[in-house]
Simulated assay, not measured.
Amino acid sequence: MLDFRKVEDAQTLAQAIVNTIPEPFVVLDDEFRVLEASVSFYKTFKVDPEHTRGRLLYSLGDGQWDIPALRVLLETIIPEHAAMDGFEVEHDFPNLGRRTMLLNARQVIYEDSSNSTILLAFMDVTNRRAIEREKEQLLKQTEELLRQKDTLLKEMQHRVANSLQIIASILLLKARAVLSDETRQHLKDAHQRVMSVAEVQRHLHASEGIDQIEVSSYLTKLCGSLAVSIVGESQPITIKVMAHSGMIGSDKAVSIGLIVTELVINAIKYAFPSAKADAMILVTYEIDAADWKLTVSDNGVGKGASDATGHNSGLGTAIVQALVKQLDAVTEVVSGSNGMTISITRATFTSHMPRAA
C-alpha cells in the first residue's frame, strides 16, 4: 500500500487527479491565487500555466476574470457554506467569448493549518442553455399557433352552425309553401338531416374545438330535438335514449347522427299507423373497446325486412346503407308483431341493452 507521508508523493497524486478531471478545474489558496489548474482549464480558457499559477484569479486575462458573480461566490457564499453546486455565471470570458458556466466550489480546511484552499470546477452549459431557450421559444410559438387554430376553428364552427340553421330554416319555409304533401314531407325529412349535422356542430362548439363528442349526451339531445319537431300531439311517441358514456370523433358522430335521424323518422312514420298509448322508440348505443352497436327499436306494428331500414325504400334507405358501409358496420333487422329492431354493429358485439316493448 502506498504511503503518502512524503509531500512530493501527495502532490504528484493531487496533480494527476486534477489533470484527470475532464472539466476545467482550478485550485485556489485562501487569497484566491491559483495554486494549480487542470489541463482542461488551460485548453478551455486558452491560457498557459506560466501566466496562471501564482496569480490572483481575478487578474487573469488582464483583469477580465474579475467577474462580480464570481466574487460573490468566492468571497461571500463559500466562507459561509463551504460548498456551492450549480452556481450559474454568464460572462464574456477572454479568448472564449460569451459563455454560460456552472460553477461548483468546495472549501478545504486543514486540521494542522490555518490556511485553506478552494476547489473550483467549471461546466460550460452555453449550448445547453441555447437549446433550452430555443425549445422555450418553439413552445411559445406552438402555443400561439394552437391558440390561433382554436380561434379559427371556433369561427369556422360558428359559421357552419349559422349556415346549417339558415339551410334548415329555408327547408321549413319551402315545406310550408309547397302544395304537394309528398314534397312537403321530403323537405321536412331533409330539414331533420340538416339538424342532425347541426347537433354535432353544437357539441363541437361546447367541447371548445376538441374533435371529440360525448356520445350519450349527443344522442340524447339529437333525439330530443327529433321528438319536439316531428312527434305530433295526436299520436304521442316517447323517444328514449340509453347509451354508454364515451367519446367519438365528430366525423363518426355525423354518420351515426344521420343514421339515427333516418331510423327514428321512419319509426315515427310507419311504426304507429294508429294510436298506441305506450308508443315508444328506444335508441341504444353500446361500446366495447373499438367495437360498438347502435340499435333503434320500436314497439309498433312491425314490418317485413324489405330493406336496410325495415321500411319502404327511398333516399333514407340509401343514406343509411351508405353510412353503414362507411362505418365498416353491418345492419340487422328483426321485425314482428311486437315491433321492429334495427341494429348497426361494428365487428362482433353482444348486446346487453333492453329493447322497446
Rank of each mutant, 00 (worst) to 15 (best):
R193I: 06
K46F: 00
E8M: 11
E90H: 04
S113N: 08
A37R: 00
T345F: 04
L138V: 02
D112I: 07
V301S: 09
S225W: 10
F41M: 09
I265A: 03
N266G: 03
V27D: 02
T350W: 00
V324W: 01
Q148H: 10
I342T: 12
N127C: 01
P68I: 04
G86P: 01
T331Y: 09
D181W: 03
K293R: 15
P79V: 04
Q201G: 12
V324T: 15
D62Q: 13
Q201E: 15
A357T: 11
Q201I: 13
D85H: 02
D150G: 12
G339A: 06
G310Q: 09
D251I: 09
A130V: 10
I210G: 08
L102E: 12
T238G: 12
G97S: 03
E155Y: 08
P49R: 02
T238H: 11
I319C: 01
P49V: 06
L226M: 14
L282P: 01
T126Y: 08
Q192N: 14
V47L: 12
C223H: 09
G249A: 09
E332L: 07
I118Y: 12
A121D: 02
Q326M: 01
T76C: 07
L263T: 04
T126G: 09
L171R: 07
S343Y: 02
L153G: 02
R133Q: 11
A83I: 00
K46P: 08
V7S: 11
I78P: 05
S274F: 06
H244I: 03
I170W: 05
I67Q: 04
R346Y: 09
I237S: 04
L315C: 04
G302K: 11
K252D: 11
S163K: 03
G316F: 03
K140L: 10
R5G: 06
A322K: 10
V108D: 05
S217F: 00
S250N: 10
R193Y: 07
F32S: 10
L73M: 00
V330T: 04
M123I: 03
S245C: 05
T52W: 03
K43Q: 13
T345E: 08
F122R: 08
A121N: 03
F93L: 04
V200F: 04
W292L: 05
V215D: 05
I342P: 06
V197L: 15
D3Y: 01
D48A: 14
Q11L: 15
T331P: 02
M84Q: 01
Q141D: 14
R346H: 15
D85V: 06
I268V: 15
L57F: 00
A69N: 02
D112K: 09
S59E: 05
V34L: 08
I166P: 10
A347H: 12
K154G: 12
Q148A: 13
A82L: 14
K252H: 08
L172C: 07
L219T: 03
I342W: 01
A271I: 10
S207D: 15
I248M: 14
F349E: 02
M195K: 14
F272A: 05
V324K: 02
T220G: 01
A130M: 01
S229R: 14
V18D: 02
I78N: 01
V160E: 03
L187I: 06
R202N: 15
